[in-house]
Design a protein around this nucleic acid. Structure first.
Lengths: 205, 205
DNA sequence: TTGTGTGAATTAGTTCACAGCA
DNA sequence: TGCTGTGAACTAATTCACACAA
């Protein structure tokens, strides 16, 4: 299916859906593009343009049907089934993100966290079962994990990535400052804290 | 001064500089655009295009002078002086990032972390002095803090932001899933973990 | 009226391709 | 020969502006 919406549209659809589910759906049945726009920093024209990629349409006097909209975004983002995720690294950064996922994310399921510290393994850490990194090759296929979040030391990042790719992982969110080498069928999203801070330093006045 | 390089160029310059300082500068005096390209997932044409925004030039047979290059990037990114940063929130996510900054980032200085938990205040947490959020209005101007990283609970994010803006902060890296409302002179960089994961789920095959 | 749906225009970002230099 | 510097071409993303519908 249309695996080529603009990257930016995909990002915004994710955001729209959360807004729809977390705040609009309890208040109303229909939503206008300008209501979504007001709640984000996006123009209403942009919202409508994004919604064109879904095939549903709104009505000029009521807007878009919320239930239909969020259902369709879920379908397009590809998880009527929740996405099955693994965290690599149970240090403070990894734990911080585990906390985050434990707070009821209906479409994202944090299945396992892997660490090389024996003391952490076998326990539940921030709501998620911790395994030793040696167990990755068993647990990842067994648990049908699709996505990994890298929050391990930078020097282990490429090695962990090679293993994840070997085990069939198709997408990685990389919180380490290492540039990962992956085959072209693996999608990597880099989150580089240093760069983000420097960018904010540059553009903030 | 030219406060309008493309956003993407600024991001890449930040990355180039780290590579230059952390790995190339110890090995060689000059670097070719294709060497930087090979080490990242960027084309050499893109690297040269980015470097056009700095006013220095390379030599066809030796490439770019590393010392000159990283110095000029530092100057353009605006910190010959290190950027002075505050972390808002000393939970696990905040602590994870504090660890990160403690590991010798020459151009970024983590000055303070603010939390509302009295037990944490007055102590050093992950290498950074912790203050109560009540002390923000004193500490931020006193310490000339320019940038804040928001790693507090989502429900406090807007309130913290309003206070930060009032205290003259010009840039915020927002790790909460809240869409912040700020005046136009404040630059916000959103890092939305849920969106990143969903994007990776969509584009990863 | 007010908001949707969408071509057309605009702006941002990337890649091509090659002249010119050391 | 191999790389830089850069117009020109191209692709991605955003905004404009307005016909149409309820």
């Amino acid at each position: 299916m249309s695996s080529s919406m603009p990257r930016k549209t995909v990002e915004r659809l994710s955001l729209y859906r959360r807004l729809l589910e977390e705040e609009f759906s309890s208040k109303q049945d229909y939503v206008f593009s300008h209501e979504l726009a007001a709640r984000t920093n996006i123009t209403s024209a942009q919202v409508r343009r994004d919604l064109m990629y879904l095939k549903i349409s709104g009505s000029p006097n009521r807007g878009y049907r919320i239930h239909e909209l969020s259902g369709e975004i879920a379908r397009i983002l590809g998880h009527t089934e929740p996405l099955r995720i693994a965290m690599i690294g149970a240090g403070r950064l990894g734990q911080g993100m585990l906390d985050f996922f434990t707070k009821k994310k209906p479409n994202l399921e944090m299945i396992a966290v892997f660490d090389s510290d024996d003391d952490k393994c076998g326990r539940i850490i921030c709501g998620t079962r911790c395994y030793h990194v040696r167990q990755m090759s068993a647990v990842i296929p067994e648990q049908k994990i699709q996505i990994a979040i890298l929050a391990c030391p930078s020097e282990d990042a490429q090695m962990m990535t090679d293993e994840l790719v070997r085990l069939g992982i198709k997408g990685i969110v990389n919180f380490t400052p290492t540039t990962l080498k992956v085959p072209e069928w693996v999608y990597v999203e880099d989150i580089d804290i240093t760069t983000s801070v420097e960018k904010v330093g540059y553009f903030g006045k």
